[in-house]
């Protein structure tokens, strides 16, 4: 079943001449983790804002969880989607951690008794319950993003969209956020769309779509995308380490396999190469 379907989408920003999307199509399956990559300005953020009804298309059809997106249904559609944005500071609405998680619940008019339960559960889920009364100034970027995720979890959406949510975090913060997403996707089968430049994040996805100038230029499993090592940098993705190593091995006159290898796969392959000697 398709969780999201984008059909014949046409969109440009009001002050601009050029179309960001001209007859764009995309389907996302239920329970799928889709990574969208592309260099800055390729239309990734615009696309997810259109899906969430934060921008309105000129024409075309967007369907989310069986609901056709129209001005009347936009709030229903948004209730299916939880979004985490890039800048941890600029999406923290509440005065402290628990207030921020509650903000979305208040908007959805959830009764207070249930709010108390959901806020606590969501914060425990992301490991932030002991910071419940902390103000945002006392949190690191990674902690703020975990709070943002708790805000999403508390609303029990079907889809989570991460708009470069890890790009401003340090490596530890990034790992913590990714681990939570991984669990939401694998255990609770939430559909995940993540916009990213980070190879670790992209490699967790089941499918990678490469955007360029508002068009899908590649749509495949991560391994296939990663194996085109020459083109990766150009499309806005840091090549995986194993591909960079292959490049250097070739320079040393060593024949390397064409298919993408993970780090472990690469060690195994080298081990075999050595055993053959």
């Amino acid at each position: 079943m398709d969780m999201i379907e984008v059909k014949n989408l046409i969109f440009k920003y009001p002050q601009q001449e050029v179309y960001n999307f001209n007859n764009f199509n995309l389907k996302v399956k239920k329970g799928e983790w889709l990574a969208i990559i592309g260099h800055n300005g390729s239309g990734k953020s615009t696309l997810v804002r259109l899906i969430d009804g934060l921008l309105a298309p000129e024409s075309g059809e967007i369907t989310v969880s069986g609901i056709k997106l129209t001005p009347e249904t936009v709030w229903d559609v948004r209730s299916k989607i939880g979004m985490v944005f890039q800048n941890p500071d600029n999406q923290f609405v509440g005065a402290n951690v628990e207030d921020d998680v509650a903000f979305g619940l208040e908007n959805a008019a959830i009764p207070r008794e249930e709010m108390l339960i959901r806020v606590k559960q969501a914060l425990e889920r992301v490991g932030m319950w002991k910071f419940a009364d902390h103000e945002p100034v006392r949190l690191s970027g990674g902690q703020k993003q975990r709070v943002a995720l708790a805000g999403v979890i508390a609303l029990k959406p079907e889809i989570v969209i991460l708009d470069e949510a890890t790009s401003m975090l340090d490596p530890e913060g990034r790992l913590a956020v990714l681990e939570i997403i991984h669990e939401l996707n694998r255990v609770e089968h939430l559909t995940v769309i993540s916009i990213t430049h980070d190879i670790d994040e992209a490699s967790k996805a089941q499918r990678v779509v490469v955007l360029d100038d508002g068009k899908v230029v590649q749509d495949d499993i991560p391994a296939e995308i990663f194996s085109h090592r020459a083109g990766l940098i150009k499309i806005g993705l840091e090549p995986p380490f194993s591909e960079k190593l292959k490049e250097e091995l070739i320079k040393q006159g060593i024949k390397v396999p064409d298919e993408y290898l993970t780090k472990e796969g690469m060690v195994d392959w080298l081990w075999q190469l050595f055993s053959k000697q």
Binding site: R49, D52, L54, W75, R78, S79, I81, M83, F85, N87, N90, Q91, V93, F103, G104, N107, A108, G151, L155
Partner: peptide, 12 residues
């Protein structure tokens, strides 16, 4: 940014 985030979180 904040306005966008609030809207995405259902503030109306």
């Amino acid at each position: 940014d904040l306005a966008t985030a609030m809207e995405a979180r259902g503030y109306r």
